[in-house]
Design a protein around this nucleic acid. Sequence first.
DNA 1: GCATGATCATGC
DNA 2: GCATGATCATGC
Length: 468
Amino acid sequence: MDNKYNANSIDSVINYALQLKGKTLREACGNSIESHGYTGKGNFGQLLENFYFGIERNSRAEPDFLKVGLELKTSPLKINRKGEYSSKERLVLGIINYLKVHNETFETSSFWKKNAHLLLVFYLHDKHKDLLDYFIKIVGSWKYPSQDLLQIKRDWELINQKIKEGKAHELSEGDTFYLGACTKGSKGGNLRKQPFSHVQAPQRAYSLKQKYVNHIIANITDSETEVYGKIIDELAKVDASMSIEEVVILKFEPFYGKSVLEIAKILGLKINNKAKNYLAKLTNKLITKSILGIEASKKIEEFEKGNIEVKTIRLRADNLPKENISFRAFNYNRIINEDWEESGFKDILERRYLFIFYQFENKQLILKKVKFWNMPYLDIIEAKEVWEKTVQIIKQGNIVKRVDKNGKRFTNFPKKSNHRISHVRPHASNKYDTYPLPIADVLTGETKYMKHCFWLNNNYVKNEIYLK
DNA sequence: GCATGATCATGC
DNA sequence: GCATGATCATGC
């Protein structure tokens, strides 16, 4: 290519990239894209690389801009409810080569050689437009803050450990904090060999979690509005070699065995135990104020970036959670148009959770223990059946099985008694709280139906999370 | 006593 | 008005 930029100068490369802001690929590359055989298919990143930067397509282990150590990454944006740009997806950083990585250390890994310094180009995705007409909104370079890098290294090592144990097929995005192993390839069906097991494993890629990418965006555009507290600052006071999770648990332990009343007293909180969410609120304050030593109003940066969801559980004396665990209601029209790989339920199942277990003892709630957890991959595959059945029932308009004399509905959705992990039940304010149906219900002719959601079975929580 | 359907309370 | 977290009601 001509001398649009100097490939030996990092500033030159970045400045050239910054000129993309506000433009589309068509505007930025002139006619060269069409004249080079662009067929309407392809990927935004490749087109940008070829036609704007003049780099031939490659799948090298080195960064795209080799001489200055910069790796070009493009990623779509969406507009969130507040009208701000946020990442539409996780940021994929390259396929995991199961056969090779077990010989690498993080510092010498091909992952780190390639991805230590990123040149990021974010464009606004619009399903009504040709990708040549997407507007490029955010451009910037990115290096990991040293505190994040420690965690990313831990994440990378955990992924490697699983491969070394012959468990590449059990990898899940929820295993790790910032750097995830996401499925990659046609509907997750791409199977690869792994070195220490004869079981073939779904192809996966290193990726930064969507929430982490949002923080990168806020950082690049200098638009961070939330005020965060950091666990890591507490960590340094304890023992810098401990992980975020170890520190959180260590800080919780002094409260084990204490009652909600005692904890409230320590926190200086009044308890309104008529409010259904008082325990969740108390837990939240406990985490921020007492355990992490930050202001209760602040969000915890690491939990945000790592997409960690806190769940408060009340156990009965026999260790069974008093209730099943609900998630957000699904939209009938949306769920039937999703692939499993991009489905909301898979997102729920691949997340990492922090469970806070309280137990009833002599009518008092006692903090028993806390546990970071994510669903094992094989269980996710099992729970997938519940999703598939649900989608099929909605597609067939076969939701209602019968209506009793009081108007109470019985559905064909997957039941708890037939499924070990998860089931489907209503999750609505009342029966008038509905979502539209894609096709009318065969039995009742109704075109909308009470909101439902996936629930995690309480006996699964007892056996697979609390007792394990 | 549990499974399943239905609804409540709060905060943003 | 809705998402979130949770509990209630009933019949088998």
